[in-house]
Every structure is written in structure tokens, then in C-alpha cells.
Nucleic acid binder design. Structure first.
Lengths: 102, 102
DNA sequence: CAAACTGGTTTGTACTGCAAACCAAATATA
DNA sequence: TATATTTGGTTTGCAGTACAAACCAGTTTG
């Protein structure tokens, strides 16, 4: 049992909101736009914006900005690195929790 | 898909240090004393003390204070409620893992 | 006796998450 | 046309959090 593995995981991924965002992006394989995430997870714009900035600086997501018609549109997708990090983290947690429930 | 279940898990439990503490307590079925946790997880005294206060106010752990010889000794144990919370968290994580790794 | 150790708690600080406030541009309304 | 509202976000201010340093009460050691 190495519970202390938990203490080494990237803290950026631990937050529930960011974890939900990452899971959403990983689940839908295609890029997801700003407003869809807001609606799906019930977040405010400011909150999503700052979480995304963090996820981007960690290279967990890629942000694409384009114009659709005359309006700006921002879409996000999970990087391969991000997906690996997500799975690693979830497996670490799963592993530890399984050991404790035995 | 209810990734938003993640948003419902108790935030007190999500923190890496507290999760490590809870896992430690749930794994060892007997009460664990202050210093053992510090050594096992590599925490400082102040940090452990405040985390424990939070876990206690959530009723996730029970604190017992007694004197051994002439010295104070504080031991912690996981409550049934705390253990249930861990199990709930495990199920949420397992669910997400299934959905995102497909 | 003083110094150092034990077993913690309290406190100061730096960081974080959140929504309100803001902004630029597009669109609707009169 | 002017101007109000909506869209699609970003920045900012504040409240809460995690952490270790400082502290405290008592004990042991020299």
C-alpha cells in the first residue's frame, strides 16, 4: 500500500471542478465549447475561464479560438498527456480506496 | 453519464492529504496515533492538526485524548460515516474511470 | 536549576476558487 | 439612426484554505 503516492499527484488535477472538466473532455472525444461545459457542469463563466487557464498551463487541455460567423468561439480538447494524467490520478485514487474498503 | 456526481463529493474528502489520512485510518482498522501518521505521511504537526480538526467536524474521524504515563496521547479512528464517505467516493471515481477510458 | 524534548495547537502568510464586475463586439429594438 | 441587450468570454476582489513557523504546557535530561 502506498498511500503516500497520493501526495505526489499533480494538485491541479485534484480539484473536483477541474476533474469534472477533464472527465467531460475525455469522455466526449471531440472538442467541447465553452458554453456547453458551463451548461453541463453548472459553472459560472469566470470560474470556467480560470480553471481552463490552469489546465492549459499544465498542458492538460488545448484551447482553440476561432470565429464562427462573426462571433468568437472557444473550444477545448483533452491532450493525450492530460488523458494519461487523468487516468493515472483516478487509478491511484481507486487503488487506494479499494485497499481501504477490503 | 453523470460526471457532475464528482461535484457532489464532499470537498473535505477530496484534498490529497486528508484522503491519505482517511485511507490510512480506514486501512489500519485500529486507532492510529498522531505521530505515527506524521511519520507515515511525512506531514508537519501543524498541518496534521488542522486537517484532523476538519475531518472531525465532518464526523469522518473520532479523536481520543488520553494520558499514557504522564504524557498526552491523541489517537484517531475512522468513523463508520467516514468509511461510507470513502466508499461513495470510490464508486464515483470508478464510474468516471469506466466512462472516460472506453 | 536550566536546557532540551514531547505532543500537540494557534497564528501568519501565501495561495486558491469563486462570482461579480468588466470588456469588446454583435445583434436586437425603437 | 441611436441605444439597449446579448454574446462570449477575461479580469478582479474577496473569502476561504493549506501550510509551516511560532507557540504552549508539561516532561525528561544534564
Amino acid at each position: 500500500m502506498n498511500i503516500s503516492n497520493l501526495l505526489n499527484v499533480n494538485p491541479v488535477l485534484v480539484d473536483r471542478v477541474r476533474l469534472s472538466i477533464m472527465a467531460t473532455l475525455a469522455f466526449k472525444k471531440e472538442p467541447v465549447d465553452f458554453n456547453s461545459i458551463i451548461i453541463e457542469l453548472g459553472l459560472t463563466k469566470g470560474n470556467l475561464s480560470t480553471h481552463m487557464k490552469k489546465l492549459e498551463t499544465e498542458k492538460f487541455v488545448e484551447i482553440t479560438k476561432e470565429f464562427v460567423g462573426r462571433k468568437p468561439k472557444t473550444t477545448y480538447s483533452c491532450t493525450k498527456f492530460g488523458k494519461e494524467a487523468l487516468n493515472n490520478y483516478l487509478k491511484t485514487v481507486e487503488d487506494i480506496l479499494k485497499k481501504t474498503s477490503g
